[in-house]
Computed example of a mutant assay.
Amino acid sequence: MLIEGQDLSVAIGGRPVLEGETISCEPGMMTALVGPSGCGKTTLLHCLGLLLPVDQGRILNGGKDVTKYSTEARRRFWRDHAAFILQDYGIMEEESVAFNVTMGVSLLGKRVTGNQERLMEVLEQTGLQGREKEMASHLSGGEKQRLALARAIYKDASVLFIDEPTASLDAANRRKVIELFSDFAMRGSTVIVATHDSEMINACDVLHEVGS
Rank of each mutant, 00 (worst) to 15 (best):
T113W: 00
R118H: 13
I178Y: 01
L139D: 00
L119G: 02
V105N: 03
N115F: 07
K110W: 15
I162S: 00
S158Q: 08
G130F: 07
S106W: 04
M135S: 13
E143D: 13
A152E: 07
A185C: 11
I153T: 05
E132F: 07
T113Q: 13
M186G: 12
N100H: 11
F184M: 03
A152L: 06
V112C: 03
E179W: 11
F184L: 08
A167G: 08
M120D: 12
R174W: 04
A136S: 12
L149V: 08
Q145H: 10
A167N: 02
E164V: 11
M186E: 13
G142T: 07
K144W: 07
K133R: 08
N115H: 13
K133N: 12
G114T: 09
A157C: 01
E143T: 04
V177F: 05
N173L: 09
A171C: 12
G109V: 02
V105S: 00
E94V: 06
A98W: 02
E143L: 04
N115T: 00
T102K: 05
L147W: 02
T113L: 15
N115W: 10
M120T: 12
S140A: 10
E94Q: 14
E132M: 13
V101P: 02
G141D: 07
S182V: 14
G142N: 11
G114A: 07
S140T: 14
G114H: 12
F161E: 06
M103D: 01
L160P: 00
G188C: 07
S137Q: 10
F181N: 05
V122T: 04
K144I: 01
N173W: 05
E132P: 02
K176V: 11
L149T: 05
E143F: 00
D156L: 10
S158W: 06
E95H: 15
R175C: 06
E132V: 00
V122S: 02
E95W: 13
L107A: 15
E95F: 13
L169N: 06
E164R: 05
F99N: 04
R118E: 13
G141W: 11
D170F: 03
V159Q: 05
R146Y: 09
G127E: 12
